[in-house]
């Protein structure tokens, strides 16, 4: 009886302190607890499946996954496949043009909009609007516009210019550029928004100081404003690069990889091999090569960007 009483007393005396300690513990564990489902999902569904795909690429999986190890056979077959090289070449052409043109147009639009013009908000919305469409819609619309029999070519001819030709969509040598056109139309507004935000963040006092020093407007842009947009270039590049490499829906809706396989992209190749042609092993191998391409481009860039930042601060 007396023992339990002392125990009670101590417990009463302890309660406030224990509560605050529990609060500390809770505060310590809560973020981890809340984040853990996301973390688990990311670990399993991204990294887990990347590892699984990597494993499958070394097996003879055809219609369903199998676990018979065949070494590098799938990679050998992949790099003996003419179509794979076509799609790699297309990816190189497409992603370089897409990223460069998007950055150029996005930056120019942003600079022009930044001249304190009237109706800036409305213009900004108009430029940004294509971003609201899905790539499938963009692809379908451009497919009609670029079709020589119903689109731009037909329209210009009906205006009287009978010999006008704009048949990139049906020309195997140019079909990949139609994807660039449509993708640039869709994404440059978004890049503009990024740059515009960056431009607004440039410190006015530096520009004023430069003006007092007698710098021309052109010099202010090339020497001060654009260099200070470096982090924006960085994020825009990272976003555009991953849009380019995973491009699938736009190409499928616009050209279907055609004419022939002339506008094929690695993502289409991977999809067809894995899911319609019962060559899952080969598809997994191509997916791994795509992953390595992304890593090979992004990691050095990330590394250099993040390192310089540490120096500055």
């Amino acid at each position: 009886m007396s023992e339990s009483k002392t125990a009670d007393l101590t417990s009463v005396a302890m309660t406030p302190r224990r509560n605050s300690r529990m609060g500390d513990t809770l505060a310590y564990w809560m973020p981890k607890l809340v984040l853990s489902p996301t973390l688990i999902i990311v670990l399993v569904f991204f990294y887990g499946f990347i590892l699984w795909t990597g494993y499958l690429s070394f097996t003879n999986s055809r219609m369903l996954p199998s676990y018979d190890f065949v070494g590098w056979a799938n990679y050998v077959r992949l790099f003996n496949n003419e179509r794979w090289f076509v799609s790699l070449r297309n990816l190189a052409v497409y992603s370089v043009l897409f990223i460069v043109i998007c950055l150029a147009i996005g930056l120019s639009l942003a600079i022009l909009l930044d001249q304190k013009i009237r109706a800036e908000g409305a213009l900004r919305t108009i430029y940004l609007y294509p971003m609201a469409l899905s790539f499938i819609v963009t692809g379908t619309v451009w497919k009609w516009m670029l079709n020589p029999q119903v689109g731009i070519e037909q329209f210009v001819r009906s205006l009287g210019w009978e010999t006008f030709r704009f048949d990139w969509l049906v020309d195997p040598n140019f079909s990949i550029y139609t994807i660039v056109v449509a993708a640039v139309w869709q994404s440059s507004g978004f890049v503009m928004a990024l740059f515009l935000a960056g431009l607004r963040g440039v410190d006015d006092s530096i520009i004023k100081a430069a003006q007092i020093d007698g710098a021309s407007r052109f010099m202010i842009y090339t020497r001060i404003i654009i260099p200070s947009l470096r982090p924006v270039f960085f994020s825009a590049f990272v976003m555009l690069a991953h849009i380019a490499i995973k491009s699938f829906d736009l190409a499928l809706a616009l050209t279907g990889g055609g004419p022939g396989v002339s506008s094929d992209l690695p993502a289409i190749f991977m999809y067809q091999m894995s899911f319609t042609r019962n060559q899952m092993g080969l598809g997994a191998a191509s997916a791994m090569i795509m992953l390595l391409t992304v890593v090979a481009i992004l990691v050095p860039y990330l590394y250099s960007e993040l390192r310089t930042k540490k120096h500055e601060h």
Partner: peptide, 9 residues
């Protein structure tokens, strides 16, 4: 040789 130009796709 005997197709119209709009045949692809």
């Amino acid at each position: 040789e005997y197709l119209d130009p709009g045949f692809p796709g």
